[in-house]
Design a binder for these strands. Sequence first.
DNA 1: AATAATAAAAGTATTTTTTACCATTATTGT
DNA 2: ACAATAATGGTAAAAAATACTTTTATTATT
Lengths: 234, 234
Amino acid sequence: MTNKTVDFYSKAAKMHVATDCIVFGFNTGELKLLIFKRRVEPHSGDWSLIGSFVQVDEDVDNAARRVLKEITGLDNVFFEQSKTYGKADRDEGSRCISVAQFALIRIEEYDKKLTEKHGAYWYRIQDLPKLVLDHDQMVIDALEILRQRAKHQPIGFELLPEKFTIPQLQSLYEAIYQRSLDPGNFRKKVLSFKVLIKLDEKDRSSSKRGAHYYTFDHENYKKLLRSGYNFEVI
Amino acid sequence: MTNKTVDFYSKAAKMHVATDCIVFGFNTGELKLLIFKRRVEPHSGDWSLIGSFVQVDEDVDNAARRVLKEITGLDNVFFEQSKTYGKADRDEGSRCISVAQFALIRIEEYDKKLTEKHGAYWYRIQDLPKLVLDHDQMVIDALEILRQRAKHQPIGFELLPEKFTIPQLQSLYEAIYQRSLDPGNFRKKVLSFKVLIKLDEKDRSSSKRGAHYYTFDHENYKKLLRSGYNFEVI
DNA sequence: AATAATAAAAGTATTTTTTACCATTATTGT
DNA sequence: ACAATAATGGTAAAAAATACTTTTATTATT
């Protein structure tokens, strides 16, 4: 490295970089968020999103991956950058910017033991407690992004089990958008995308007749995405 | 601050934080990007987006505001966070993450002298040169976000002069989406939003008859936004 | 002064999509 | 056997998008 290059960097300030995860889950017809009670200073005892400082040789998204693995035990969690929070005074402790990520997990797949060990709990989004720092805002922003994404991409599937029924999928969308949808029209729309594979098996837990299970056709989804298909669910 | 709190932060790595601006402009029916030729090491002589390190007591968005003012001379540039680039190896010089911002400016309003002084030039997006580091990817991502935003919010207006005609607005949308639109339908749609104020004055530069000038009705736009109105332009 | 040329602006008819609602079906517990 | 229930399939009306045509205001040209 030239002296001039060294100069260029050394003049600039350094600061902490964190990543915080807004972890959504879905069961019993309700959208939930995974938050945890801090056990270390600062803000010990306060509710917080799960997060971590980014290490100097670590990609920001790998830091998020590490955090998610640590708390849920899951390897392939779906997550995506939400927004970066960069106010100079957002963290009183030390200058720290945070890259927020929103993550979707299958609530029945995560490692309960591990989650409890870390003091993490699922809360319905309607009755979240006050969170530390600007984490409340992070949740508000992530919810908006989730709604935006869910409208044009079938990411809702990330929140459901491998096998799911159309009424379950509908109930998820109803939870995300906080409104009821017509069952007939929802079915028609979602099947028109040709990304669901119907299984022979049925779920009889919520009706006499039973609803067919479906799985998501990842292959065809990718194909359609490439061809510029517009999945407008709602 | 408690010792424990100090401990919590001091263990964490610090790194540089930069902000880079993807500055879009529009004139003569074409979408343009403001880029500049670096005059300092590292990468001196290479083409780059405009950007800066974030100072330790500076909000990230204020850093962007500062950069934009410095280069264009403009105070109230519209900009919005695009995405944060956090790969550990994205900058060989020193660990540095960058918060990218996409900005829209009225190409006839900026300070030409100032821009030239900084070695910045407007390029049509179709014939951009290779940019430094991951700046190429930043442009690709920002374009996608611009398209996404322009679809649901009338931000296109940020790129046009205070007074503009409907055909001008159409030509902007055609440049953003790289496709032609039907004049009648476009007019019908855009007027249906009730956010344009028709002026008596006409622009006679492109037709015998002349096209009426309009201005954007910011007041009514805000009102409609609050009421959840969906501005789906395309 | 009449007219040709031009793009803006307004209008209309057709097609497609959305929405609201109703009918049928498979199943089970009584 | 039958009532109950939610899943599924279907249909008609309403709304929106699209393609296309006509009229209009203006200027340059004859």
